[in-house]
Design a binder for these strands. Structure first.
Lengths: 361, 361
DNA sequence: GGTAGTCGTGGAAACGTTTACAACGGCATA
DNA sequence: TATGCCGTTGTAAACGTTTCCACGACTACC
């Protein structure tokens, strides 16, 4: 006997053997009755269930996993749980996992590829049913190779890799993709500003090679082109997706010279919040002096009455889990890539531009 | 052979046996070399590690757990991951888990005791090293019994229950407690308002029997008593800890009659944000017309320049994990309860009251 | 009344690891 | 040269499940 933990005096956690003995049946019968719906005499069934209740038995997930039953867990890997964007996706994953009776393993990387790898290894050890990787990323060749490696290694361990809000890989890589339409959203909200008469629209948070800001900038440019408004590269300000950056970008811009824009399109709501604060510190009112829009529609947006693009965060998480589990059940004919839609939420941060010579003024 | 998964043609995930064969040693040796630091000849060691790399071997967590090695996971159960309060505690748990090389299982309950129970059962199955329960709760007898049951059942499964921001149980219950000082924080910030001359301070978010709001109200009352300011129960407004509630409470109060307060102490930052919006909608400026303070010091507080009480959320999570793991290593002589401190963060939402007959005005 | 089929159950192997115990070799000491 | 010890490695049992296979009892049919 290799028992190390509790003394064997009955203060042991009951096993399936105990339940079987208590109910006067074999372990096989108990196992069958407990794991899903299997033919069994009602009398036996109730006897077993009573024994389970009386002994307060819970199965040993390790033994269950080892013996080959399909895993009961779903994994999600994010940069950080405190960032609202990730938190909402994680919530969606949680919800769907709970619905499916699975539990949810969360790993954070802080954006560090090293830690990402370590976390994926842990998930591989754990035999999670699927591993959901979410977030903005540099989409270079190294990334593609790394993801392809993950996907294959995970597939070998019986897990399904799901990329959430990340670009797809080659067709021969066993990975699912759930995205949302950044470009269309950016196009729509830029058009919203253009329709209100704005021509000089500052874009905050350009960051080349990063997938999310890159596709948002793309939508911005396309909308300008569609409205035949000349594109001024100087209106695209570089910065990361954080609140402080929004503040910095506006501050530096206004310090550098006179204001040469009538509207601001912030790369996300956090940037918008920071930008808003900086604008107000310069005595500019929103929306009276400057119009401001964001992207994401997370709680801060409602707080500051921001017109923005709604991203279905929770739905992304739910869809990722749903797709992975469906695929586990039925290998064939399911889509490998889903793109969810976005839409504008109009609040109170945009005013039409009134031309200087407008007689109404 | 009961293999059901991959076809046995080499596209199998490598086991420790494969590694042993590849390195020309026994499985015991491989196991010893991989799991922690154990005496072994350097030559063997490198041979084994090379085999691991070449085969891309990762251990099977289920088998490892089953064979009796201590578990590698830490569990946290919260109401919701999107609520900043919980998210920050979860982040702390994550961080510490990563430091200790453990992974983190997250369960959400939506505040439903039913789901809480189900989640605890899942964690019990999973043999998590510790289970951290966080958040505000009704602290009645039923709660105490439920928690005591959890604690005992988890202890039997080898896990340690940790209550985070929840009241302690009896001394004979095997549970750890990590709290922060709500009453002291509320006392301090109320004193801050009193020192600025405020006498009529509205408290938003009273909720009897719920531990968190209850102890915050207690601090508020104590501070009033200490400053010999009469306590008017009518200044305590009931409501839950949500943004919308803050808005509602102010709206209804101002609709019911003339303003009879000069400062507002919101039960948390979310309430403060809602209250702020409602006050502004009534044309009241903060802090010029009304002073406003909150509790928690989460990101929204900085956004709205709110003077508030800083709660060490991440530190709560980290401490919970640290305590549980220390206890697992060394059973004796460690504290069972820790109370972390809080402190005021002064921003720009409080102005001194100027008496009407003050000559300076 | 015999045979085939169905339903419910039990026995036992297998999953991949950890660890107690035993065994082996080499070195230092007597 | 014989003895004892230590450091390193191998053998095998055990962990608690699931599931394959076999077997008995009953029903239904010819």
């Amino acid at each position: 006997m290799v028992r190390r933990a509790a003394p064997d005096n009955g203060e042991r956690r009951p096993t399936i053997r105990d339940v079987a003995a208590h109910a006067g049946v074999s372990v096989a019968t108990v196992s069958r009755i407990l794991s899903g719906t299997y033919a069994s005499a009602p009398a036996t069934r109730t006897r077993v269930l009573r024994a389970v209740r009386e002994l307060d038995y819970v199965a040993n997930a390790n033994a269950r996993g080892l013996a080959g039953a399909s895993s009961r867990s779903v994994a999600i890997i994010v940069n950080s749980v405190v960032s609202p964007h990730y938190a909402h996706v994680a919530q969606g994953v949680q919800d769907q996992a709970a619905v499916e009776g699975k539990l949810c393993i969360v790993g954070t990387t802080g954006g560090d590829p090293e830690r990402e790898l370590a976390t994926v290894q842990l998930m591989r050890e754990e035999h999670a049913e699927c591993v959901i990787l979410v977030g903005n990323v540099v989409a270079d060749e190294a990334y593609r190779e790394r993801m392809a490696d993950y996907a294959r290694a995970l597939a070998l361990a019986g897990s399904q890799l799901v990329l959430c809000g990340r670009p797809a890989l080659g067709p021969d890589v066993p990975a699912l993709v759930v995205e949302y339409d950044n470009t269309a959203g950016a196009h729509a909200i830029t058009s919203h500003l253009l329709s209100a008469g704005h021509r000089r629209i500052l874009f905050l948070g350009r960051r080349d090679n990063y997938t999310t800001p890159e596709s948002r900038v793309a939508g911005y440019r396309e909308a300008l082109a569609d409205h035949r408004v000349p594109h001024d590269p100087d209106l695209e300000v570089e910065g990361t997706m954080e609140r402080g950056e929004g503040h910095r970008m506006i501050r530096e811009r206004l310090a550098a010279g006179p204001r040469d824009f009538t509207a601001v399109f912030a790369g996300n709501d956090l940037i918008a919040a920071g930008a808003r604060q900086a604008l107000r510190e310069h005595g500019l009112r929103i929306p009276d002096d400057v119009s401001l829009v964001g992207f994401d529609d997370l709680p801060p947006a409602a707080d500051i009455d921001l017109t923005t693009v709604h991203v279905p965060h929770e739905e992304l998480g739910r869809t990722a889990v749903r797709m992975a589990l469906q695929r586990a059940r039925d290998k064939s004919g399911l889509p490998e890539r889903v793109v969810l839609g976005t839409h504008i939420v109009v609040r109170d941060s945009v005013r039409p531009v009134v031309p200087p010579d407008d007689p109404a003024r």
